[in-house]
Design a protein around this nucleic acid. Structure first.
Lengths: 216, 216
DNA sequence: CGTGATCTTGAGGGAATTCAATGTCGGTGG
DNA sequence: CCACCGACATTGAATTCCCTCAAGATCACG
């Protein structure tokens, strides 16, 4: 029977509660643990020398994270429960068990693909970034047609490389366009096809040619 | 004696020449090989639905690449010689040899860190992006104080999420500032400390007040 | 009901893009 | 050898998009 990483963490790890805002690890810390989110939401981020903050990822229930520890910091966005397992233990296990080794590799590969997609988000227009972000979140939470954002606007902004004002404006703009509705500031009822269309539309228009109907 | 991945590729792989501009693999291809650059330069990129192109990485002699195959395409920027090895063969070897498994993981982790740094580049101002790019290249090629860029401006632009005009203007701007000299358009004599200073300067300054403890 | 945190909206300015034209370099053929 | 060509690069003018600064609105909570 193959050992599944997620299960291993549950069997071998301890569950620790982190209150809203609590630090899980810091950039300066040695990377000692891997984590699985049992409940709540986590942000992984880096603070640049100029004081700005870049959020590298949001981790939701079920996600495993901590691979980027040592480079990034992590904090609980909401009250959270985390399963923790020592990296040492996993690496030792991987040395004896190929399944585990392979899954550590897979996990890293998945993370790599995630960051590559993040790059693709960051080169687009504000509208496309926000639309892309909403689609990403919609894919990750079960509920159909509606998302409850666990993070404040500032976190969204720092994830997308925008300002909080631009995020806010863009959301109302998307609402006016009919791509989403905002019953409350954190709840987003979305029209997936409309959001997809925005991404297909090419924010700064395809140079030269037709370039119609962007931003109204 | 531990098996070193780079050596394995050389021992087990075949050397293939690729002329300037030749495709190495395409996004649609199955990811069958890992490559090591013996000579020349390679670009890995993705073409977005709107026609724009994002370059994910440049690979120089000595670099191993191909992990992102299946998601990205790769082309030779200059005439290149590549060592190729089947992924299958490596994965099979990894199943028996922990060293190999561990190195495949390390390679992926390094790539992950590289892409994370790319994200940090992309959220900065044009000047910082170009300065950061030059510093990155300077770190990767041996010669001290001078770089020979193997890629055209368009590639630099697509790597940095800028237009070719902005890259060009920014380079002349850096030259006027005294951070670099451009004997020819592809050769860059750089002053590392000046470039570093530009990055420290924070293109867009920290907003608001003292930059204390926002986000709790 | 006030207080602070979060979010939205507006006005103005700056930075990068777009469009367009000119400049440079290496190669090829007259 | 030089004129011409195409690929690559630089520069300028106008525009667009996003940021900055500032004020107001909304929400949660004591």
């Amino acid at each position: 029977m193959m050992k599944v990483l997620a299960n291993l963490i549950e069997e071998m790890g301890a569950t620790i509660p982190f209150p809203r805002g609590a630090a899980i690890y810091r950039e300066s810390d040695p990377a000692s643990y891997l984590y699985k989110v049992a409940a709540g939401t986590v942000r992984s981020f880096k603070t640049l020398n100029n004081g700005r903050r870049q959020i590298g990822a949001f981790y939701l229930p079920g996600d495993i994270f901590g691979l980027e520890a040592g480079e990034f910091s992590a904090e609980a966005i909401t009250d959270a429960k985390l399963l923790m397992i020592e990296r040492k233990a996993l690496v030792a296990l991987a040395a004896r068990d190929n399944d585990v080794a392979h899954q550590l590799w897979s996990l890293t590969s998945r993370e790599l693909r995630r960051v590559q997609n993040h790059v693709l988000l960051l080169i687009q227009s504000a509208q496309e970034r926000v639309a892309g972000f909403l689609l990403e979140m919609a894919d990750r939470v079960p509920a159909g047609g509606e998302i409850e954002l666990p993070m404040p606007r500032q976190d969204v902004a720092d994830y997308l490389g925008l300002t909080i004002e631009t995020v806010s404006r863009t959301l109302t703009h998307l609402e006016r366009r009919g791509a989403i509705t905002l019953p409350t500031s954190r709840r987003v009822v979305h029209c997936r096809s409309a959001l997809n269309q925005i991404n297909a539309e090419s924010g700064w228009q395809l140079r030269g040619t037709t370039g119609q109907a962007c931003y109204q």
